[in-house]
């Protein structure tokens, strides 16, 4: 379980998060919805310990990671996988090498075991035949599937998605959302889905937190979003895609 307790974050004079609290249960898909540039991706970086909050605490399975050193954070981070908005694939490595990169770096596995796990992810992402291609040779949707495969390579319990369908065509978006849904159904994997596209939330999320001006203005089951009287939520329900 991931918990953020009264988390505040500032960049210089700019207040990004203003005392937010969130709880993300295992095996559930939680969406964080908000306009672009509001600090949604920052929440994912805080959960991974890539950023430190100015105030508040972040707990992963009950362990406070807020003041942990980088070396202490590595085992915590292995419990989660992340899919970055721009995928963050290594452009000089092939798809297979990208998938196996962190296993070779950080796990004491034989080359056969690594290849087996890479093969699993290639199959999962339906990328057979593209093992030796470079990321630049793939479409946006395929790159996203590689990034999801890489995030799953350590067999984490939770996966963090940063705008997983941003910039994708409707068909690819549907495939990616289907993939996210199937992960929970097949493997019981939990997920945090940061997005500004409200349709994505309704398609896959069990619950949703709405971030607006640094605060969480709604945090409940997805279907209850329609019941909210908050003017901002009313406006996003009619606009569907949020723009700042």
């Amino acid at each position: 379980m991931i918990e953020l307790q009264n988390v505040t974050l500032r960049y210089g004079d700019r207040q990004i998060l203003d005392g937010i609290s969130l709880a993300i249960e295992d095996s559930k898909i939680k969406a964080v919805l908000g306009p672009s540039g509001v600090g949604k991706s920052t929440i994912l970086k805080l959960i991974l310990g890539l950023l430190k909050p100015n105030n508040g605490r972040i707990l992963i399975d009950g362990v406070d990671i807020t003041s942990m050193k980088e070396s202490q954070l590595y085992p915590i981070r292995k419990k989660m996988g992340i899919v970055f908005q721009g995928n963050a694939l290594f452009d000089s490595l092939t798809i297979s090498e990208n998938l196996g990169f962190f296993l070779r770096e950080n796990e004491k596995l034989s080359e056969d075991e690594i290849e087996e796990r890479v093969r699993e992810q290639i199959e999962f992402a339906s990328l057979e035949g593209y093992e030796d291609s470079l990321p630049e040779d793939l479409s946006g949707g395929m790159k996203k599937r590689v990034a999801i495969g890489r995030a799953l390579i350590f067999r984490p319990g939770m996966i963090l998605f940063d705008e997983p369908t941003a910039g994708l065509d409707p068909v690819s978006s549907k495939k990616i959302l289907g993939l996210i849904g199937s992960l929970r159904k097949k493997s019981g994997l939990g997920a945090v889905l940061v997005t500004h596209i409200i349709d994505d939330v309704f398609q896959v999320a069990d619950s949703v937190a709405v971030l607006y001006k640094g605060k969480i203005i709604f945090d409940d089951d997805t279907e209850k979003l329609h019941d909210s009287n908050h003017p901002f939520i009313q406006s996003i329900l009619s606009d569907k895609i949020l723009e700042q």
């Binding site: 890539l50 980088e70 981070r77 992340i82 970055f84 963050a88 694939l89 770096e105 890489r150 350590f154």
Partner: peptide, 18 residues
């Protein structure tokens, strides 16, 4: 800029060492 350095950290590799 392309978050590859964040990816290294997120997946347990020290980017300065690497």
């Amino acid at each position: 800029i392309s978050e590859q350095i964040d990816a290294l950290r997120a997946f347990g590799t020290d980017p300065i060492a690497k």
